[in-house]
Design a protein around this nucleic acid. Structure first.
Length: 350
DNA sequence: TCTCCACAGGAAACGTAGGAAT
DNA sequence: ATTCCTACGTTTCCTGTGGAGA
């Protein structure tokens, strides 16, 4: 049924549909590069899964075909200024900087290595204003950047004046797609990734509608529907497969997110998940009760309350936990209690 | 309404691993 | 071999906030 699984991956280079105006703005921003000049800096914003990264890749691939232009894609989430600079240098020709190379050294290496127009894509850049990375990059003559974030108002209010000034005329927002637009996008994936007519137009529209304009959600659901049909020995995707696809797609996205997190996060997640819902005080009480068993024989040691709060925040950001209330009334709950940690954690339930 | 307590989260300090310099 | 330097993860300290109880 699925003839080309890659079609449903985030990185798959599909054609860009229903983003003509946005494509134009981004293309104009990199146009000076064709004249050997530095491009314009851009802030690209919009909800998760509406194609910000895909659009950026498309524009840079097109630019590269017209005139070979180095570009570096950096995942900024959780990185410090030095971490971002190091990631850029690692991707450029030349020796990789070490973990402890001084920041000032990284800055001068960057200026030395970037002699031709280069574009840096700062993906997941919501926390960039808290770092000095943009100030450093703005001082590299031939370098321009495209920062990708979710909430641009918040981003701009936290950004340094120079940064805000650089993107005032080039802040570009991507809205969720309409159901009709997303149906078109899904139809293309159907054509490239699935056998014949295994799914009807009406079913595609249903998926698009349920995805509420979020392309990634729709594409994941389409793949999930096909997987379910195969597992159930259906010759085509049936309505029941479509109906069940959304839960499976959400589950896959969350499992992937949990997989990517380190040990402490798994401990915190499991404590909340096994209870379903806990208050902050119950959480800390439980953490203290299980640490001896959970951390026994490991390199890591239990973390303090303050650090646990940071881990919980990350789990909320990753859509694995939800929370309600403020202060002492705050409660944490698992978004999907059926998703367990892939690590075999022994968190005894009393 | 006031006081107390626990939590949230920002900022600074600290300890450590590991690369660079001597 | 040693000493120094750096980034990073974590802890410590702190201020602000909200609910519970008097």
């Amino acid at each position: 049924m699925i003839i080309e699984p890659r079609v449903f991956d985030d990185e798959y280079p599909a054609t860009i549909q229903h983003r003509e105006a946005e494509l134009d703005v981004l293309t104009t921003a990199v146009e000076p590069i064709l004249e050997g000049e530095r491009g314009y800096d851009v802030l690209l914003h919009g909800p998760q899964g509406v194609g910000k990264t895909v659009l950026t890749r498309h524009v840079l691939d097109h630019l590269d075909r017209e005139q070979p232009t180095p570009n570096v894609h950096v995942h900024c989430l959780g990185k410090s200024t030095a971490g971002i600079l190091r990631a850029i240098l690692s991707d450029l020709p030349g020796p990789d900087p070490s973990r402890t190379t001084a920041r000032s050294t990284l800055e001068s290496q960057l200026r030395e290595r970037i002699t031709d127009p280069t574009v840096i894509v700062l993906d997941e850049g919501d926390d960039l204003p808290a770092t000095d990375a943009l100030c450093v990059l703005q001082n590299v003559p031939k370098l321009s950047w495209i920062a990708i974030c979710h909430n641009h108002n918040d981003w701009l209010s936290r950004a340094a004046d120079a940064t805000r000034h650089a993107v005032t005329s080039r802040t570009l927002g991507l809205d969720p797609y309409s159901t009709a637009e997303l149906t078109d996008i899904l139809a293309e994936r159907r054509r490239m990734g699935l056998e014949g007519d295994v799914i009807s137009d009406a079913q595609l529209t249903e998926i698009a509608d349920e995805a509420a304009g979020i392309a990634r959600r729709g594409i994941f659901a389409l793949r999930a529907a096909a997987e379910l049909a195969v597992e159930r020995n259906h010759t085509t995707i049936e309505d029941i497969d479509v109906a069940d696809s959304f839960a499976r797609a959400r589950r896959q996205m969350r499992e992937h997110a949990l997989d990517s997190l380190p040990f402490h996060h798994h401990v915190c997640y499991e404590i909340v998940r096994r209870r379903g819902e806990v208050s902050a005080s119950e959480f800390h009480e439980r953490y203290s009760a299980v640490t001896e068993a959970v951390y026994a024989g490991r390199d890591q040691t239990p973390v303090t309350k303050r650090e646990r709060r940071t881990k919980l925040q990350k789990l909320v950001d990753y859509d694995l936990l939800d929370r309600e209330g403020n202060g002492p009334a705050r409660r944490y709950m698992a978004r999907d209690q059926s998703i367990g940690s892939p690590l075999d954690l022994t968190v005894p339930v009393p």
